[in-house]
Design a protein around this nucleic acid. Structure first.
Length: 825
DNA sequence: TGGCTGTACTG
DNA sequence: CAGTAC
DNA sequence: GCCA
DNA sequence: GAATG
DNA sequence: CATTC
C-alpha cells in the first residue's frame, strides 16, 4: 500500500527532535510502514527523499518548520511543502489495510496540517496518541449507536429499576435483604450477622459473623472474637475521621466513640430510620466504596428520603466533578466534599431542617454567619452550604443546570455529553479520568468507539483487557455473586494443597469479606508460609510466593476459570494486528491478566561501595540464599554490600507481595469479571488482610487517624511498639514534585525526636513514626537544589514486625478488633 | 498554602 | 513523570 | 471543597 | 541500552 | 512514556 511513500516522522513540537525511539507510536507506524512497502526517512532528513511529513502531534506546519530548523535543516528547501499529515492518516490507512485488505491510500486531505499562520489547531491530544479529527465514517456509526443507546436507556428508565443484573441471582436475594447496623441501631449488628450467615451457606452456625474465609482463619487459630459495642464505637469514631473531615471533632476516642454510639442509638429510635441505609451490604447494588451514589437520585434510592431532592441536585453536580486523579487541582476533593454533604443528607431520616437542628448538617446561613463556636461542620463548608440553600430556596442548582444543559458546549462536546462519555470510558478497566478526558476531546464517545481505535493506540495491558471485556466488565450492574467467589477461592486453595500441602492459605477478601453477597470483583489473598514445612531455613522453589501464584493461576486455568493469553487472543475474532505486540504485560504468567514484577530488574549498590553488578551474571548464577534473603526485604545484607532487587525470580526466595489482576469467569461460561490475586508472606497476614479487606474508606480513615491523631492512647500504643526512645537520627528528605510526593535521600537531618506519636500503616507493616522536632543539623546534597526538610517528614521505625493477625494490628493501635462487616464505610 | 492513605506498576 | 490501580 |  | 522522572 | 546519559 505504501509503495512510493517515504515518510519523515516528526516527533512533536517541543521535543528535542531526535528520531522517535523505542516503542513510540512513531516507531510502530514506521515498522508497519516498512512492512507495507514504504520507506522511513532518516533523520536529519534529506528533503528530496521525503514524500510525506508525518507529525505525531496536532501541530502547525510552522511548528514543524521550527522543529526542522532545530535540526539545522535549511527551511527553504522544505518549500513548497510536501504533504504534512497527522499520524492519524497513517493509522487510518493501516486500519483500512487490516480491515478491508484495501490497497489504496486513504485521502489525506482531512488529515492535512494547517499551514503556517493559520490558527494552530487545538492541542487536545496526548502526545503520540491518535490526534484530533475522527474519520467521518465512524461519526455516523456513533450517532446510530448513540441513538440506540438512548432508546434503550429510555426504555430502562420507564421500566423503573428493572435493569437485569447479569451476575446477581434473580431469585431470592431481594427477599433476604435486611437492614444493617449503623443508623438503625445496635440490634442490627446481630441482624446483619444473621443475614450475613444466610447469605453465606458455609458460615458456621455457632458463629454467625464468620464468613467462609474467616472460618478458615478460625481453623488456623487466627480468628479473634470481638466486642461488638467497642467495635461499633470505634467505627463511628474512625468514620468521623474520614479524610480529615473530623479532625478535632473529638480528640479522645472514648468520648467520640460514646457520643457516636449514643447518636446511633438515638437515631435508631426514629420511626423511619431503617429506611435510610445508604450502603446496606446486603441490599446495595454497588460497593460501599461508592456510597453517596447509592443515595443518589437514581433508581437505587427506592426509599423515601426527605432530603432526596437536595441530594439529587447535589449529586447532579458531583457527577461533573470527576477528578484529575490526585493532581494538585484534582476534582477528586471537590467531589469528596460534595459527597460528604450528600452522605449526611441521604443518611438522615429527617428533612434538612431537622438535620440542621441535629447538627448533622449545618444550615447554610449558620455556616455563613459564624463558625459554630469552634465546632466543625462535618466537612460541609461555605460553598456546599450555599448550594444547599440555593436548592432549598430556588428548587434547583444553577451550576448543575449549566452542566446538565445539553446546549452548554465545552471542548469536545456538551458538558452533559462529557459526563456521560466520561462515565462510559472510565468504566473501562485501565482508563481513568485523565485518559478518558483525552479520548473525549478526541471524539471518542463510548467504549466501542475506543475499541475501534485500539489497534492504533498504545495502551496498557489493562486497557486492552478492559476493552476486550468491556461488555462484561463495564457498568454498574455487573456483579459477581458470592457463590462464584467462594468457588474461586476454593479452587485456589485446592490447587495449592495439591502442590504445596500445608504451606499456603487462601482468603476471600475485598467486599466479600465484609459480608457482601455480591461484589464488583473477586479478591483472593494467598498467604504463603515459607518457613513452615521442612523445618529448615533453606528456600524452596515451592514455597516461593511467585510459585504459589503461578500454581494458583494454573489451578484456576485447569478448572476453567481463567484463560491463557493465547486462548484469549484466539477466542477474539477481532484481534487487531498490534494487539498482541506491544507491551502486553502478563507478569510472565501467561494468563489473561496483568501480573506484577516478573523480570529481575535491578542490582543496585548499597552504600555506594561496590561497583555495579552484572545483572545477567547474577541470573546465570543465582545468588546464594544468604545474599538474597537480605534483598528480600529483611534489611539488606551488608556483607555483600549490594542490594538485590528481584522481581519474582523463581529461583530465589521472594518475600515481597505479588499481585495478579485479571479476568475470570465460570468454567461453564458466563460473563467475565475482574479477579485480583495477591500473595503475601506469612509475616504480614494481619496487615495484608486489613488492607485487602478494606473498605477503601475504612482504610483511609484508619490510616489517616493512625498517622495524625495525637491521641494519648495512640501515642502510648506507638511507644509500646517502638523499640527506642528519643534520640538523634539521620533521616532522608522527601519533597513534593509535580503533585506527587517522592522520598529521595538528598541529605541528612540530625534532629531530636520525641516519642513516637502515630503509626504508618500499609499492607505489610504497621510502624511507629516520629516527627523530628528540634533540628540540629541539616546536611543537604547540592543535588537537592535548595529543597529542604519540609517539617512534615516522618521518621519511621525501621524495625519490622510480624503481623500474624488483624487482631494484632488493632491491638497495637489500641483499637478494639473491628470485624470485617463493620468496615463498610 | 498544602494536604487530603499508601504503594506498585506501566509506558 | 503521569497515569492507573488496589 | 474544606481545614488548619 | 539503561537509567531516570 | 520521553528524555538523558
Amino acid at each position: 500500500m505504501f509503495r512510493g511513500v517515504s515518510a519523515l516522522f516528526v516527533p512533536h513540537a517541543d521535543a528535542s527532535c531526535a528520531p522517535p525511539k523505542h516503542n513510540t507510536l512513531g516507531n510502530i507506524l514506521a515498522a508497519r510502514l516498512k512492512e507495507l512497502g514504504g520507506k522511513v526517512a532518516k533523520w536529519p532528513p534529506n528533503p528530496d527523499d521525503v514524500t510525506h511529513v508525518v507529525v505525531l502531534e496536532n501541530i502547525t506546519t510552522s511548528e514543524v518548520a521550527r522543529a526542522l530548523d532545530m535540526q539545522k535543516t535549511a527551511p527553504a528547501s522544505w518549500t513548497p511543502w510536501k504533504r504534512v499529515v497527522q499520524c492519524a492518516w497513517m493509522q487510518m490507512a493501516l486500519r483500512r489495510e487490516w480491515q478491508e485488505k484495501s490497497n489504496e491510500l486513504p485521502d489525506d486531505s482531512p488529515f492535512a496540517v494547517s499551514p503556517p499562520g493559520a490558527e494552530p489547531a487545538k492541542r487536545n491530544v496526548v502526545r503520540g496518541e491518535v490526534p484530533c479529527t475522527p474519520p467521518k465514517l465512524r461519526r455516523t456509526n456513533q450517532d446510530a449507536r448513540r441513538a440506540d443507546g438512548g432508546a434503550e436507556a429510555a426504555a430502562a428508565a420507564t421500566a423503573g429499576s428493572s435493569t437485569p443484573l447479569p451476575f446477581v441471582r434473580s431469585t431470592g436475594e431481594a427477599n433476604q435483604r435486611s437492614p444493617r447496623w449503623g443508623w438503625a441501631g445496635r440490634n442490627d449488628v446481630a441482624e446483619q450477622a444473621a443475614s450475613h450467615a444466610a447469605a453465606s451457606p458455609t458460615s458456621l452456625a455457632l458463629q454467625p459473623y464468620m464468613t467462609a474465609s474467616e472460618q478458615l482463619e478460625h481453623e488456623q487459630g487466627l480468628f479473634t472474637p470481638y466486642d461488638r459495642d467497642a467495635a461499633a464505637a470505634a467505627v463511628a469514631f474512625l468514620r468521623s475521621f474520614w479524610e480529615q473531615t473530623g479532625v478535632g471533632v473529638a480528640d479522645r476516642f472514648d468520648e467520640a466513640g460514646a457520643g457516636a454510639a449514643e447518636a446511633a442509638a438515638a437515631s435508631s429510635s426514629a420511626p423511619t430510620a431503617s429506611k435510610f441505609q445508604a450502603d446496606d451490604p446486603v441490599t446495595s447494588d454497588s460497593d460501599a466504596d461508592d456510597a453517596g451514589n447509592e443515595a443518589s437520585g437514581h433508581d437505587t434510592m427506592r426509599w423515601t428520603n426527605p432530603n432526596l431532592f437536595v441530594v439529587q441536585n447535589l449529586n447532579r453536580l458531583k457527577d461533573h466533578m470527576g477528578g484529575d486523579g490526585r493532581g494538585p487541582d484534582a476534582g477528586q476533593f471537590k467531589e469528596k466534599a460534595l459527597m460528604r454533604a450528600i452522605g449526611i443528607l441521604s443518611r438522615s431520616p429527617y428533612g434538612t431542617e431537622v438535620a440542621v437542628a441535629q447538627r448533622q448538617i449545618k444550615s447554610a446561613n449558620e455556616i455563613l454567619d459564624k463558625k459554630h463556636g469552634g465546632e466543625h461542620n462535618n466537612g460541609v463548608g461555605r460553598k456546599t452550604a450555599e448550594k444547599v440553600t440555593e436548592i432549598l430556596e430556588t428548587g434547583t442548582l444553577r451550576r448543575a443546570d449549566v452542566f446538565d444543559g445539553s446546549n452548554v458546549s465545552m471542548d469536545g462536546g456538551s458538558a452533559a455529553e462529557r459526563a456521560r462519555v466520561m462515565d462510559a470510558l472510565t468504566g473501562i478497566w485501565g482508563v481513568g479520568p485523565n485518559i478518558a478526558n483525552r479520548y473525549f476531546l478526541d471524539g471518542v464517545r463510548d467504549a466501542d468507539g475506543l475499541a475501534e481505535r485500539l489497534p492504533f493506540l498504545r495502551r496498557t495491558a489493562q486497557q486492552k483487557i478492559g476493552i476486550r471485556h468491556r461488555a462484561d466488565l463495564a457498568g454498574p450492574g455487573k456483579r459477581v455473586p458470592r457463590a462464584i467467589a467462594d468457588k474461586i477461592r476454593k479452587a485456589a486453595q485446592d490447587s495449592l494443597n495439591e502442590a504445596f500441602p500445608g504451606t499456603a492459605c487462601t482468603y476471600l477478601v475485598g467486599s466479600m469479606r465484609r459480608g457482601k453477597v455480591s461484589s464488583g470483583d473477586v479478591d483472593v489473598m494467598v498467604v504463603v508460609d515459607s518457613a513452615r514445612g521442612d523445618g529448615t531455613d533453606a528456600p524452596r522453589r515451592d514455597r516461593n510466593l511467585r510459585s504459589a501464584l503461578r500454581r494458583v493461576l494454573e489451578g484456576l486455568h485447569d478448572r476453567g476459570y481463567i484463560r491463557r493469553l493465547e486462548e484469549a487472543l484466539a477466542a477474539d475474532p477481532d484481534v487487531p494486528p498490534d494487539y498482541t505486540l506491544s507491551n502486553s504485560n502478563d507478569g510472565g504468567f501467561g494468563f489473561e491478566g496483568v501480573g506484577r514484577g516478573h523480570e529481575p530488574t535491578a542490582v543496585a549498590p548499597l552504600d555506594g561501595d561496590s561497583e555495579d553488578e552484572d545483572v545477567e551474571e547474577r541470573e546465570e548464577n543465582p545468588p546464594e540464599y544468604d545474599a538474597v534473603s537480605g534483598a528480600a526485604g529483611a534489611g539488606g545484607s551488608k556483607k555483600e554490600e549490594t542490594l538485590y532487587i528481584y522481581r519474582g525470580h523463581d529461583d530465589v526466595q521472594r518475600e515481597e507481595p505479588i499481585t495478579w489482576m485479571g479476568v475470570a469467569h465460570e468454567p461453564s461460561g458466563g460473563p467475565y469479571f475482574r479477579l485480583d490475586l495477591k500473595v503475601y508472606p506469612r509475616r504480614c497476614v494481619g496487615t495484608a488482610l486489613l488492607y485487602f479487606t478494606g473498605s477503601a474508606r475504612f482504610n483511609r480513615a484508619l490510616r489517616y487517624w493512625a498517622r495524625w491523631s495525637p491521641r494519648a492512647e495512640l501515642v502510648r500504643a506507638a511507644r509500646r511498639l517502638s523499640p527506642s526512645g528519643p534520640g538523634v537520627l539521620r533521616v532522608g528528605l522527601s519533597f513534593t514534585q509535580s503533585a506527587t510526593t517522592k522520598t529521595r535521600h538528598v541529605g541528612e537531618l540530625h534532629a531530636h525526636l520525641e516519642q513516637p506519636n502515630g503509626f504508618r500503616i500499609n499492607d505489610t507493616d504497621l510502624t511507629p513514626i516520629f516527627v523530628p522536632k528540634r533540628v540540629e543539623k541539616e546536611v543537604v546534597d547540592p543535588a537537592a537544589k535548595g529543597r529542604r526538610w519540609g517539617g512534615n517528614e516522618l521518621w519511621q521505625c525501621s524495625r519490622t514486625y510480624e503481623w500474624l493477625s488483624e487482631a494484632d494490628v488493632f491491638n497495637a493501635m489500641g483499637l478494639p478488633y473491628i470485624p470485617p462487616f463493620l468496615r463498610n464505610m
